[in-house]
Design a protein around this nucleic acid. Sequence first.
DNA 1: TCCGATACTGAAGAAAAGGTAGGTACCTGA
DNA 2: TCAGGTACCTACCTTTTCTTCAGTATCGGA
Lengths: 111, 111
Amino acid sequence: MKKRSYSCGLDAAVDVVGGKWKALILWALHDGPRRFGELRRGVPGISEKSLIIQLREMEHCGLVHREVYHQVPPKVEYSLTDLGTSLNQALIPLGEWGEKHMKTIEAIPAA
Amino acid sequence: MKKRSYSCGLDAAVDVVGGKWKALILWALHDGPRRFGELRRGVPGISEKSLIIQLREMEHCGLVHREVYHQVPPKVEYSLTDLGTSLNQALIPLGEWGEKHMKTIEAIPAA
DNA sequence: TCCGATACTGAAGAAAAGGTAGGTACCTGA
DNA sequence: TCAGGTACCTACCTTTTCTTCAGTATCGGA
């Protein structure tokens, strides 16, 4: 969320879900609430710090809901809001595209 | 294209179309070939340098095609390949989501 | 003769994103 | 007493991304 005005809908969506991790985190939440530790394990490669920052930003945007259980040891659950769920729906075709063309993409030389 | 393996399709798609500009550029090409200058004007806010870099990367990935006309002044046209077109299709729901929720997104406070 | 238009390239630096490593607080169980 | 598990926070540093600004080559037109 850096911009104040967008040139089109895609511009706005990219601003909200942009970056390396947000789409993956959203995806990881698609079948129900997840605890912090579950997300960390469910999004391979992400660092704790990045995960927290992304979650906070998405909470701020109203995409995810954060529920704290005052227990010991602490328990925090993250879940999708209605807005987050609708965004997740919009990401499905992109996920399918990636699935379909993954082999092609992986075969692209790095240089 | 930095990774060699992906945890899921969405991961792969984000890797290909990630960043601030690629989705917008792809979008700008959706109704036919565009010259370099047209793209620069059609994607507001982008610098020449970024535009070229993004175009080169997408050409490398097989998403866009670059056609040079040896004229003076020079003319270069960029167009979508089949792969680029299919990716663009997958971006449509995201664009629609952004369109629908743009007001909400714009109303989010910066802090 | 010099300006403008086209499509770039390169250097330099700022800004954003991400990673690492440490620490906090709490209670449980050994 | 002390390690272990939870969910963080903070400081520091590196990497990546983006912007700015300058410059290249060609030709037509003023």
